[in-house]
Amino acid sequence: MTTIPVSLGARSYDVVIEAGLLARAADWLAPLSRGRTMAIVTDANVLPHLATLQAALTTAGVASEAIVLPPGESTKSWAQLEALTDRLLDLGVERGDHVIALGGGVIGDLVGFACSILKRGCGFVQIPTTLLAQVDSSVGGKTAINARAGKNLIGAFHQPALVLIDPQVLDTLPLRQVRAGYAEVVKYGLIDDPVFFAWCEANAAALIAGDPAAREHAIAHSVAAKARIVAEDERETTGARALLNLGHTFGHALEAEAGFSDRLLHGEAVAAGMALAFGYSAAHGLAPAADAERVAAHLRAVGLPDGVAAAGIDADGETLVGHMLHDKKMDAGTLPFLLARGIGGTFLDKSVELADVRTFLDAG
Results as ranks from 00 to 15, higher is better:
A310S: 15
K329N: 04
D233T: 14
F250L: 08
A315M: 00
A253W: 01
T237F: 03
A225R: 15
V223T: 08
A301E: 12
L246I: 06
F347A: 03
H252C: 00
T319D: 01
I343D: 02
L299C: 09
K226A: 01
H221L: 04
A340N: 14
G307M: 11
L254V: 06
V302C: 01
T346C: 14
R241W: 07
E318S: 12
K329L: 08
A258Q: 05
E236F: 12
A283F: 09
D306A: 15
G312Q: 01
A231L: 04
H217K: 04
T249I: 08
E257A: 15
G344M: 10
P336L: 00
T334E: 07
A271D: 07
H326G: 04
A213H: 12
D331G: 00
G239K: 08
G247K: 08
A311S: 07
S222D: 06
A296E: 07
R263N: 10
G344A: 10
K226M: 03
H217Y: 13
I219K: 06
S261F: 00
F250K: 03
D327N: 03
A253D: 04
I343Y: 01
L244D: 09
A224Y: 06
E216I: 10
H266C: 05
P336F: 05
T237G: 02
A277I: 09
A310D: 07
E255Y: 10
E293G: 04
V321A: 12
K329G: 08
H266F: 03
D327M: 02
M274L: 09
E232N: 11
P305F: 02
A231M: 04
D327T: 03
L335W: 07
G344F: 09
L338G: 00
A292H: 14
G342A: 05
L264F: 05
A240H: 15
T334I: 12
M324T: 05
A258V: 08
A309H: 13
L246S: 03
T238Y: 04
G259H: 07
H323F: 06
A332D: 14
E234Q: 11
T346Q: 12
G279C: 09
H248E: 13
A271Y: 05
L244A: 10
D349I: 09
F260R: 14
G333K: 00
E232P: 05
T319E: 01
E236H: 12
N245G: 09
A218F: 09
L338K: 00
I343Q: 00
G317E: 09
H221S: 10
V230Q: 09
A253C: 04
T238W: 02
T238C: 11
